[in-house]
């Protein structure tokens, strides 16, 4: 059947919806400034806490795209990406795919996130789809990352990411 040809193995399907161990992401002033600087923000509220408070924030707010920094610990952090190493290696597709691209990212905010917040991030694969295009086999994996603030248990953001392998 068509399934013979599918890139997606049963082992891959079994990973859908399985939540990761939580990663602690600290939101701190140093990292907010570093991130804001790297994408060229000039608004002082990302750099000067007094300006941020004047504008109504508890401390420096996160610039869009920054959701805290995973606490790095060599015992369980990934040396390249900084986040938590996946326990077991993600199962490989039936045919090898060499390249990977970030296909898209969406962040939905439910509250403002400021320096001092500690977020617990939990991720899971929500969907795996395959396509055959002009560049050959493509595997599109959608994953969700939920960010819960530890101090009040509120989910403050959900990030949806799409990874493309081909």
């Amino acid at each position: 059947m068509a399934d013979e040809e599918s890139l997606i193995t049963d082992e891959m399907r079994a990973t859908i919806g399985v939540r990761s161990e939580p990663t602690i992401c600290e939101v701190d002033k140093l990292q907010i400034r570093l991130f804001a600087r790297s994408v060229g923000h000039v608004d002082p509220i990302f750099y000067d806490e007094a300006e941020a408070k004047k504008a109504g924030y508890r401390s420096l707010p996160c610039p869009p795209g920054y959701l805290g920094t995973p606490v790095y610990d060599p015992r369980y952090s990934d040396p390249t990406f900084g986040g938590r190493r996946g326990g077991a290696r993600a199962p490989e597709p039936r045919r090898p795919l060499k390249r990977i691209l970030n296909g898209g990212t969406e962040i939905e905010y439910f509250d403002s996130i400021c320096a001092g917040d500690v977020l617990e991030s939990t991720s899971y694969v929500s969907e795996i789809v395959e396509r055959k295009g002009s560049i050959g086999d493509m595997l599109i994996t959608t994953s969700k990352n939920e960010y819960k603030r530890k101090s009040d248990g509120k989910v403050v953001a959900v990030m949806t990411g799409t990874g493309i392998r081909y």
Binding site: V39, D43, F46, P63, P64, G65, L101, Y109
Partner: peptide, 28 residues
């Protein structure tokens, strides 16, 4: 990709205010 996403967001926050975004999603 996230660098381009952050740069694009800067155009929006410079225009609309620093914490204006309720939702922000892009494809690369």
């Amino acid at each position: 990709g996230m660098f381009s996403m952050g740069l694009t967001a800067r155009m929006l926050t410079d225009w609309l205010g620093a914490a204006s975004l309720k939702k922000y999603g892009v494809r690369f």
